[in-house]
Design a protein around this nucleic acid. Structure first.
Length: 774
DNA sequence: GAGTTTGAAACT
DNA sequence: CAGTTTCAAACTC
C-alpha cells in the first residue's frame, strides 16, 4: 500500500517544491511547536456560542456554526491562533526534526498531561522517544488509508476510529502507531523527514511518549494521503494541480485532524501555504477555524505528503500546493510564533489542555462524524453553502467558470458533490441540509458541525471566489445575471440580522462576508442568540420560517406543460398585500416567488403575470418575459433543484438527510435558487427544509426520503407540532409520503383551494425549523 | 452609489 | 384584528 502511494505523492510534490511558494515557505523560519490544539472543532457545535477558551480559535465556532447557518463564520473567526499555532507546530517540527522533536517532546510532555490524546497526528508525531517503530508510522498511513484509501471512503474514520487512533498516544497503535517513527535516523535521509519533523513536533506536543520514527510516519502519511484522495477531491484536483494533492490530503487529514486540534493546526500550517484560494478570503481564514482547519489539516497533510521527499527543514512543503496565499499569512504567524518558542511551549501546554477538551468534545460530538471525512467536510457546506450553492446553481455558469479557473476546486471539492456539475451543485446545496451529524457514516455525509463549517467554508470560498474581489459587487453582478441570489446577502443595518427582515436570517443561513450588514448577530458565533430569536419568532408564527411559497410537486411538470397552471400549483403562503406594484415587481412576494396571487392575497390592482387573485392568468404571462422567465426558471429551478436534490439525496442520502436532523442543520438549509437572483425565501425554505424534500421525494418516490432523511423526518415531525401546517405535514407522511391534506392547508390557502397542491403542506413544514428542538 | 419606493415584518 | 412604525429589499436615477 504504502509504496504506491508514496510514488504518487512524490511526483506531485516535486512539482510544488519547485514552486516559489515552497521556497518561500521553506525560507520561513521554523516555528516552534506551540500548542496545537485547537481542536476546536469542536464540534460542539452549537453550543458554543462562546467558544470555550479551549478553542482559542474560533474554529470551534465554526463547527457549530456550520450547522446552522453557517455562512459567514469564517470571516469572523479568525484564523487566529489556531492556525498560527498549528502552523508553528508544524514548522517547528519540520525545521529540525531532531530539535523540533525534542522541543516537541518537551512541550508535549507538558502538554501531555493535559492533552495527550489528541489527534493521530499528534500521535504520529511523537518523535522520538521511543520510537522508532517504523511499523507504527506505517500504521498511521494505514489508518489514513482507510479513511482516504477507499475512494469511496465512506467509512472513514469516524470519530471513534479516529479517536482511537489518535488518542492513544502511546500504545495503541493508532495514534502511537502513527507517531512512532524513528526519529532521526530516517528523517534526514528520507523525504518524509520534513514532514516528520513537523509531525514529530505535533505529536510531541500532544503525545509524549511515543517515539516513533517520524520519518517513516511521514512518508507513510504521505502515502496515505496519496492514496486516499477522496474522489470528490480528485475531481477538484483535476482542476488544480497542486491543489489536487492537497485535496487528497485534505480528505485524509480531516479524518485525522478532525479529531484533534493538532491536526487542525497542522493543517493550518499547511493550509497557509496551500490554501491560496482560501487565503484570499478572509472568511476562509475564519473558516479555518472550523472548516478551515480541516482544510488546513488537509493542507498540512498535503505538505507532508507533498514534501515527503523534501526534508526540508521545516518549511514545509505544504505550501506546496495551493495554499499559497492565505497560508502565507498563517505562516507568517507561525513564524512569529516560532520566534517565541518559549511562548509557544507555554501556549502549547495550555493549548494542549484546551485541545484535550476539544478533543474530548469532538469525540463526543463528532465522534462518528468528524471523522471526518473530508468528504463531509467538503460537502457540508451547507448553510453558507447553501447560499453559495444556491448562487452556484443560479449562477452555475459563473461558478463553474470560476471553478474551472481553478481555485475553488478546493472548496468545492466536496467529495460527493465534488464536481461542478449542476447536480453536484445541488448536492452541495443539499449537503448542508443533510448535514447533520451523525447519522450515517456515510459516504458523503458531512458532519454536522464540521461539515457545515466546511460546507460553509466551501461555500464561502466558492462565494469568495466570486466575491473575493468584491463580494457584494460581484455578487450583485452575478445575481443579475443569473440569479445570483442564491447566495444571499443582506444589508441589514438595524435588525442585527435577527429578524425576518434579514434575508439571511429568514432563509435560515448565517450571514457571511458578502453581507453588508451591521452589528450582525446572525453568525455562528452567536448561535444561541440566533436560535433563541428564531424560536421566538416561530413561537409567534410557527410558519415564519416556512417557505412562503408553496408549490406542488406537480408544479414542475405543470410548468413544463402549462405555464398557466404553474402558478396555480404554487401559491404564496399568506398572500401578498401589494398596493402599488400591481404584483408585477419583486416587492410582491408572490411575484418574487414566481407564483400567482391567490385568494389569500389582499393585493390591489393585481396584475401578477403568474396568476391573479381571481384565478385568471394574464394572457400574457409573457408580459414580462424576463421576470416570467425568471419565475419560470425559479419554478423550474426549484423543481429541478428538488429533483436534483432528491436525486442527490438518493445518491447521497446523507446529504439530503443531513439537512436537518439537527436543529442547526435546518437553519442552514437555505437556499433556493429561485428567484432571480435571490432565492425566494420560500423556495429556499422549501428546498432546505427536509420536509420539503421529503414531500417532493415522496411525490416522486417515497423511498428516497425514508432513505435519506430519516432524520429529516424527525425534524419534520417535531416541527409540525406547532401549527397546523406543520402538523399536516407530519401527518402526512409518516411514511414519507406526502400528505396533502386539503385541510391542512397551511393555512393558507391557496393551496387548499386548489386541492391540487399536494406538496404544499409539506413544503411549509419544512423549513428551517430551527427547532428540532421540540 | 445615493436616494426613493415598496411592502413585509414588527410593534402598538 | 387593525393601524402604525420599522425595516430592508427592490427599484430608480
Amino acid at each position: 500500500m504504502d509504496t504506491p502511494d508514496r510514488s504518487k505523492i512524490n511526483t506531485p510534490l516535486s512539482q510544488f517544491e519547485d514552486s516559489p511558494v515552497f521556497k518561500y515557505i521553506s525560507n520561513l523560519s521554523p516555528i516552534e511547536p506551540v500548542k496545537s490544539v485547537h481542536v476546536t472543532q469542536t464540534f460542539n457545535s452549537y453550543s458554543f456560542s462562546s467558544p470555550p477558551s479551549v478553542f482559542t480559535s474560533p474554529h470551534g465556532n465554526c463547527h457549530k456554526e456550520s450547522r446552522f447557518l453557517r455562512r459567514h463564520n469564517l470571516l469572523e473567526t479568525s484564523k487566529p491562533k489556531v492556525s498560527s499555532e498549528d502552523v508553528n507546530n508544524v514548522y517547528s517540527c519540520e525545521e529540525t526534526p531532531a530539535d523540533s522533536a525534542q522541543a516537541c517532546h518537551e512541550s508535549s510532555e507538558q502538554q501531555e498531561n493535559t492533552a495527550q490524546k489528541i489527534s493521530v497526528a499528534d500521535a504520529s508525531i511523537e518523535p522520538c522517544n521511543e520510537n522508532k517503530n517504523p511499523n507504527i508510522s506505517i500504521e498511521l498511513p494505514q489508518v489514513l488509508k482507510y479513511n482516504l484509501g477507499s475512494p469511496g471512503y465512506e467509512p472513514l474514520l469516524y470519530g471513534d476510529e479516529a479517536n482511537s487512533l489518535l488518542e492513544l498516544p502511546g500504545n495503541g497503535k493508532p495514534a502511537s502507531d502513527v507517531a512512532s517513527v524513528p526519529e532521526g535516523s530516517e528523517k534526514d535521509s528520507i523525504e518524509g523527514e520534513m514532514h516528520l519533523p513537523g509531525l514529530c513536533q505535533i505529536e510531541e506536543a500532544k503525545v509524549e511518549g511515543q517515539d516513533c520514527g517520524v520519518d517513516s510516519l511521514i512518508t507513510e502519511a504521505s502515502d496515505l494521503l496519496m492514496f486516499s484522495p477522496p474522489e470528490a477531491f480528485k475531481g477538484l484536483n483535476k482542476q488544480l494541480n497542486p491543489s489536487i494533492e492537497l485535496s487528497n490530503i485534505m480528505t485524509v487529514i480531516p479524518q485525522f485532524a478532525t479529531n484533534d486540534g493538532q491536526q487542525m493546526h497542522i493543517g493550518n500550517a499547511v493550509a497557509s501555504g496551500s490554501e491560496h484560494e482560501i487565503e484570499d478570503h478572509p472568511s476562509e481564514s475564519a473558516a479555518a477555524t472550523g472548516t478551515s482547519q480541516r482544510q488546513d489539516n488537509l493542507g498540512n497533510l498535503a505538505l507532508v505528503t507533498s514534501n515527503p521527499s523534501e526534508k526540508m527543514d521545516n518549511k514545509l512543503v505544504y505550501v506546496t500546493h495551493r495554499g499559497i496565499r492565505r497560508r502565507c499569512l498563517d505562516f507568517e504567524m507561525a513564524s512569529v510564533q516560532r520566534r517565541n518558542p518559549a511562548d509557544n511551549s507555554n501556549t502549547n501546554s495550555s493549548t494542549a489542555k484546551s485541545e484535550e477538551r476539544n478533543v474530548s468534545n469532538e469525540k463526543q460530538l463528532l465522534p462518528t462524524k468528524h471523522s471526518g471525512d473530508s468528504r463531509r467536510c467538503v460537502l457540508p457546506g451547507i448553510g453558507l453553502h447553501l447560499n453559495a450553492l444556491a448562487s452556484l446553481k443560479d449562477c452555475k455558469n459563473i461558478k463553474i467558470d470560476t471553478l474551472s479557473s481553478g481555485r475553488q476546486p478546493n472548496l468545492l471539492s466536496s467529495p460527493s458533490s465534488v464536481q461542478l456539475s449542476p447536480s453536484q451543485e445541488h448536492q452541495l446545496s443539499l449537503v448542508p441540509a443533510s448535514v447533520e451529524r451523525d447519522l450515517e457514516p456515510l459516504e458523503n455525509e458531512v458532519q454536522p458541525g464540521e461539515d457545515c463549517t466546511q460546507s460553509l467554508v466551501l461555500v464561502q470560498m466558492a462565494g469568495e471566489d466570486f466575491q473575493q474581489n468584491s463580494p457584494k459587487k460581484k455578487r450583485r453582478k452575478l445575481e443579475p445575471a443569473g440569479e445570483g441570489e442564491s447566495c444571499k446577502r443582506c444589508n441589514c443595518k438595524k435588525s442585527k440580522c435577527l429578524k425576518l427582515y434579514c434575508e439571511c436570517f429568514a432563509a435560515g443561513v448565517y450571514c457571511i462576508e458578502p453581507c453588508a450588514c451591521r452589528d450582525c448577530f446572525n453568525k455562528p458565533i452567536h448561535v444561541e442568540t440566533v436560535l433563541q430569536t428564531r424560536q421566538q419568532i416561530e413561537s409567534r408564527n410557527p410558519l415564519a420560517f416556512a417557505p412562503k411559497v408553496i408549490r406542488s410537486s406537480d408544479s414542475v411538470s405543470e410548468i413544463g406543460d402549462d405555464l398557466n397552471k404553474t402558478p396555480a400549483s404554487a401559491r404564496h403562503k399568506r398572500g401578498c398585500n401589494c398596493k402599488k406594484s400591481s404584483c408585477l415587481k419583486k416587492y410582491c412576494e408572490c411575484y418574487q416567488g414566481g407564483v400567482g396571487c391567490s385568494v389569500s392575497c389582499r393585493c390591489e390592482g393585481c396584475k401578477n403575470t403568474y396568476g391573479r387573485k381571481d384565478g385568471s392568468v394574464p394572457s400574457g404571462l409573457e408580459a414580462e418575459p424576463e421576470e416570467e422567465t425568471e419565475a419560470c426558471e425559479k419554478g423550474v429551478v426549484e423543481n429541478a433543484s428538488w429533483k436534483t436534490e432528491t436525486q442527490n439525496t438518493e445518491d447521497h442520502p446523507d446529504q439530503s438527510l443531513a439537512t436537518t436532523p439537527l436543529p442547526l442543520s435546518r437553519s442552514l438549509l437555505p437556499l433556493s435558487f429561485s428567484s432571480k437572483g435571490k432565492p425566494p425565501r420560500s423556495f429556499v425554505t422549501t428546498i432546505s427544509s427536509s420536509g420539503l424534500f421529503v414531500s417532493q421525494k415522496l411525490g416522486k418516490s417515497n423511498a428516497p426520503r425514508s432513505q435519506h432523511q430519516p432524520k429529516c423526518v424527525k425534524p419534520l415531525q417535531t416541527v409540525p407540532d406547532d401549527d397546523s401546517p406543520v402538523t399536516c405535514i407530519k401527518t402526512s407522511s409518516p411514511n414519507g409520503k406526502r400528505i396533502s391534506s386539503p385541510n391542512c392547508d397551511v393555512g393558507s390557502s391557496p393551496t387548499t383551494r386548489r386541492g391540487g397542491r399536494k406538496l404544499i403542506l409539506q413544503s411549509i413544514s419544512s423549513f428551517p425549523s430551527l427547532t428540532p428542538h421540540h
